[in-house]
Simulated scan of single mutants.
Amino acid sequence: MFRRRIAATRRGARLARLLSIQQLAEWGVPRGSDASDTAALLVAELAANAVVHGRVPGRAFELGLRLRAGVLRIEVTDARADKRPVITATPSPDAESGRGLLLVAAMAERWGVVEGAAPRKTVWVEVGV
């Protein structure tokens, strides 16, 4: 299990992606492989959502990774349980946002949201590697 608290900033979201690639490499999932690239994309999206929608000044988000029996579970915990991610509808072609969770839902085998100790929530995804 890999778990790390990361500053809820754009740099923090980038760091989460880089840390996930490094950790997967240490677990034997090669950099640049489809599995590594998919995981990096999912981490990037969840971390960006934590920074943009789940940020509370002075509070970090947490990245968790667990690889078991060929299934990678990615967890991103933030401090905004009141802002649950939902897929509402397909955004218009010229919309600048609103596609992230559609991407997560399309790429992950399973995903969901779990409320933690107030005021936290964890968004998780599972993907085969």
Rank of each mutant, 00 (worst) to 15 (best):
E26K: 09
P30R: 08
F61L: 13
E62N: 09
R31L: 09
L65H: 10
E26L: 10
P85D: 12
L67I: 13
A79W: 12
V51W: 15
V43G: 09
L102A: 15
V86I: 04
R84F: 00
G64K: 03
V123S: 02
R99F: 11
T77H: 00
G32A: 09
A95F: 05
A69Q: 14
T122G: 10
L41N: 02
W27R: 06
I74A: 01
A108I: 10
A89E: 14
A47E: 00
G100D: 08
R59T: 00
E109G: 14
E115I: 03
D82H: 09
A69F: 03
R66P: 00
V71D: 03
A39R: 05
S33W: 03
G100E: 01
L65C: 10
P93C: 11
V123Q: 05
A40V: 06
D37E: 03
P57C: 13
L46W: 00
D82A: 06
L101M: 15
A48H: 00
S92A: 15
R110M: 02
V114G: 00
L67A: 10
S92R: 15
R55C: 11
R73Y: 00
V113Y: 14
R73D: 00
A118S: 03
V51I: 13
S36H: 14
V104N: 07
R55N: 09
V113G: 14
A105N: 11
T77L: 00
V104H: 07
G32N: 09
R84M: 11
A60W: 12
L101I: 04
R31P: 06
F61W: 07
A108V: 07
A117W: 03
R66V: 06
R110H: 13
A44K: 04
V43T: 02
R80W: 05
P57T: 15
R110F: 06
N49C: 02
A50I: 04
L42Q: 07
L67S: 12
V76G: 07
V29Y: 09
A79G: 01
R55D: 05
E62H: 02
G54V: 06
G70A: 11
K121D: 03
E26G: 10
E62Y: 11
T90D: 13
L72S: 10
A40C: 09
G98R: 10
D94A: 15
A117K: 11
L41W: 02
